Simulated scan of single mutants.
Amino acid sequence: MPAVPEIAPAAAAAAAVPAVEVAPSGFVKFAKDSFAGTVGGIAVTMVGHPFDTVKVRLQTQPTTNPIYSGAIDCFRKTLQWEGVPGLYKGVTSPLAGQMFFRATLFSAFGASKRWLATNPDGSTRQLTSADFFKAGFITGAAAAFAESPIDFYKSQIQVQIIRAKSDPAYKPPYTSVLDCVKSTLRISGARGPFQGLSATLLRNAPANSVYLGSFEVLKNRAAAHYGCEIKDLPAHAVLGAGATGGILYWLAIFPVDVIKSAMMTDSIDPAQRKYPSIPVAARKLWAEGGVSRFYRGFSPCLMRAAPANAVMLFTVDKVTHLLNE
């Protein structure tokens, strides 16, 4: 293995925490962030959606007489009952929403970093490691409003098979995401798609702080190690930073995601909901199985986290650098 060249302290510090320039055109920067995020979002959806389907189904299946004994059993039965398309149930919602959601996510992250790097007098400063985590927190809160409806429709479609297998008399109310959209708007109006928004906010802000913050910090440290600019990092360094960020995301907040899934897969009719709020959902889920109830679906989630987020963040990173050349 070739020796890593020694880096002067000043050069290493510059590589570790690069200055963030305020873009001359806010619209151009927004467009670049949005395009890069959209491409990355499509990549993560195609790679990670089957794992997400397994996760949501394990999280929301009944405690008594469960349909699946674990992640492998859920995967096998999904293929047996529905074929490969079953693993992609509800995928049209995240695919259709990728442009809006990823535009929000990565433009908010870029804007947050530029805002934190701008002093009151208009001059710029170098971002600290803490600043990246702050920017991730702001980004997560902003992106929750775009992500929540996407997750809601996806989850409603994903769990229909569970209800059909649990109750032979059950008739799936939706044949497509569009059917679900129409029903939700008819019953609850504009508030319908935001069922579970409170749990999404509670999940997203801290999770994206850890996720995006760690990704940026790890890239900076890798650049210092290799003695290069971030845009010149080898692929394995960026993929490793993305995979680590994805794993840390779920380690930080998985129980909150279980609560979110319970609320989003609940009845779209407010009068019939079992989990109308976070406290009620937490109490009822605890009653179903204590701590272990909040970790259903954890294994497929971690299996998805590394490859899906490595691919997405690598794609976003490379597309962003290409657009900025």
Rank of each mutant, 00 (worst) to 15 (best):
I230C: 04
P172T: 14
G48Y: 12
T78V: 11
V159P: 00
P94Y: 10
T124C: 05
D266T: 11
F294V: 07
G192F: 04
A71I: 00
I253F: 01
P5F: 07
V181R: 06
L202E: 10
A142Q: 09
A235S: 11
P24F: 12
R163T: 10
L239G: 03
L248P: 10
V22H: 13
T53F: 02
V177E: 01
F109V: 04
M303T: 13
L202R: 06
A19F: 09
P276T: 12
A143D: 10
G192K: 03
I162P: 00
T64M: 05
L302M: 14
V256E: 03
T45H: 07
A14F: 06
I161N: 02
R125V: 06
G41Q: 03
W286R: 12
N119A: 13
T60Y: 03
L322T: 12
G97Q: 03
Y295L: 11
R186C: 09
G196A: 11
T53Q: 04
P307F: 06
R273D: 08
Y88A: 04
P172N: 10
D73K: 00
R191F: 13
P234M: 14
F314D: 04
V56Q: 00
F101V: 15
W250V: 00
M264W: 07
A141N: 05
A8T: 14
P2C: 01
K29Y: 09
A190I: 13
A235K: 10
D232E: 13
A14N: 09
K32R: 14
K171T: 15
A31D: 05
G189P: 08
K55Q: 14
P206G: 12
H236I: 08
A130Y: 11
G110N: 06
P172M: 11
S166H: 12
A36Q: 01
G136F: 02
N324P: 01
P9E: 12
M263V: 06
D33K: 04
D269I: 10
Y226E: 10
V238P: 02
L58Q: 08
G290L: 11
E147C: 08
A23E: 15
H225M: 10
L251G: 03
A262C: 05
I67P: 02
D33F: 13
K113C: 13
A103F: 10
I278M: 09
S112Q: 06
G110Q: 04
W115S: 11
S299G: 01
L239I: 10
A237V: 05
F137H: 08
A108P: 03
D121F: 08
P279R: 03
H225I: 07
M312Q: 11
F109D: 12
S277I: 06
S148Y: 02
L185C: 09
S25N: 12
C74F: 01
S267H: 02
K260F: 07
R191S: 14
G227I: 05
E6L: 05
R304T: 03
L127M: 12
I162W: 03
S25L: 09
P168G: 00
S107R: 00
E82S: 13
A15F: 12
P2R: 05
